[in-house]
Every structure is written in structure tokens, then in C-alpha cells.
Amino acid sequence: MKLGHFAAFIALFVGLSGCRQDYSLAPPADSEKITVTVKLPKELKTETLEVMYRSGACKSVTYGASGQRIELDGRHGIEVQLQRQGQTDIYQAKLPIDGGGACRWKISNVMFGVAYIDPTRFGENVTFGGGGGVLVRFDKNRPMRSSGLPVKVDGNLKIKKDYYPWLDEEFLGRYKKTIRLAGEEDIYLSYYSPKARIIYFEPVLYSEFLVRSAGPIEKKKGNRTTFIYPDGSVLADGRSKPNFRKLQAIRLAVEGK
């Protein structure tokens, strides 16, 4: 369930130790906040912002391969909708660092991003396939999704990244056609920034530089995904995603830079 106001947030976690403890969030009114801001291109929309809080006071319990009991910091997940600021292209959310409550929750990591408003403009039954995501960690706990080694940043985050539309067709198994946002990383940009209080994300979308790809029709040795770049060049060089440097070079050549 997607909610826009902090007072209405619902816990998503289960399995904390104890049976009658109150695990709800109760952020103090004076809790310091983290401000997440997204400057949105007109063809895109913001995805739900997911926030993970952790607690050393309310442990979660899991079991190892041999049945041993393992206690971990408790987890409490919430979802937030970024709110448009007036009639601008700026969307924002403010997140309490101190989640309060009996468990003394503290913010651990946040995950957010952008997606196409209408994927079907690229064809019937086209769906959004990912890209344009950001994951920021504030502590050493495992984040809500694996995203590789994060970039360490001291202080606030200002992220401005280039993206290109990537239309992909897959034929093996169930046929699917997706539109993605091709950037430097696969899906999520990952950061570790324990002192960040302001997170600004500006995805720059170059809509006119569409890259297309088609996976193999037959599973056979030597068959590879074929990429057709905006300049008409065709490559099947074993890559699973577009060559971002090549896309940048094509655009800069067209723009005369």
C-alpha cells in the first residue's frame, strides 16, 4: 500500500524477537530529517521511495544452516510518495532519521528512482524494465537490495546522471519487450553516506538517442544479444546492456562537443 503521509506509514517487517513489544515508528517532532529531492524529466515519474529503519533494541531472529539461532538488528520498512513542489519539476520527501518508538529506530537506507510514465508509447505491451534507481546507505547494515560496492561520500549527495532510452526484446522463454533507462550502472546507483542530510537526484534523459536490442531467438552457442545504436551501428559483442561510453560519444558527436 502506497501512502503519502508519515503518520499513516505501515510496518512491512515480521519476525522480531519478543511477543508484546510495540514495534511501531514514533518519530519525535524534533527529529533531524533527511531531504530527498528528485528533479524530474517530463517523460518520467518518480517511483515509490522505500525506507529501511533498523533497531539494535528489537532484534530479528533467523537460523543458520545447522539450526543455530542468529540475532540481527530489527528491520522496519516503510514506503513514501515523493510530493511535487507546486507546479515545478521538483519532487521531495523528508524522512526522520530518528524513527523513535520503543525500539528506538534509526534510518538505515533508502531506495528510490524514476520510471517512464507511459511505456506503451514505445509499442503495444511494452513495460518498464528498470534503470534510473538510487540506493543510499547510512550505516553498515545490509541494504534492502544488493547493489554492488557503494560509492563512499562524505556529506550530502548531489547526483546528476545521464540516461538513454533502451528498448529491449527477449525471445527465449516468455517473450517480453521492455523500455529501460540505460546509464552508467545497471539499475541502481549505490552510495554509502552516513552523514548525508540532503540527497538530490537529477536524471538527464536524452530521449532522441534511443538504443535498441534483441536477444537470441534460438539458444545456441555463439548467439548473442544484438544492439542497434542511435547512429545506426550494430554490435553483438557479448554485452548484456548497452555500451554507455559509446552512447555518450554518439550524442556528443551529434551535438558537436
Rank of each mutant, 00 (worst) to 15 (best):
S31P: 09
Q68E: 07
I78D: 00
G67T: 02
K33G: 05
E47H: 05
V61E: 14
T37E: 15
L72A: 03
R75V: 06
V61Q: 06
S55R: 00
L40Y: 12
T62D: 15
L72R: 01
K33N: 12
Q81P: 04
L49G: 05
G56I: 09
L49T: 08
L72C: 05
E71K: 01
S60I: 09
T62K: 08
I78S: 02
T35M: 12
V36L: 14
G77M: 04
K59S: 07
Y53T: 09
V36P: 12
G67I: 01
Q68W: 07
K59A: 08
D73R: 08
Y63N: 03
Y63M: 11
E71C: 01
K59V: 09
T35D: 14
I34Y: 09
Y53Q: 08
L49Q: 08
Y63L: 07
L49D: 01
A29H: 11
V61F: 06
R54Q: 11
D30A: 12
L72Q: 04
P41I: 14
E79K: 13
K42Q: 15
S60A: 11
S66I: 01
C58P: 10
Y53S: 10
K39G: 14
Q68F: 04
T48E: 12
T35F: 07
R54F: 13
L82C: 01
L72K: 05
P41K: 14
S60L: 08
L44K: 05
V38P: 05
L40E: 06
T62Y: 01
V80G: 01
A65Q: 11
S55L: 02
V38Q: 14
T48H: 05
E50T: 05
L44D: 07
E47W: 02
G64R: 08
K39T: 15
A29N: 10
S66R: 11
C58S: 03
E79T: 06
T37D: 15
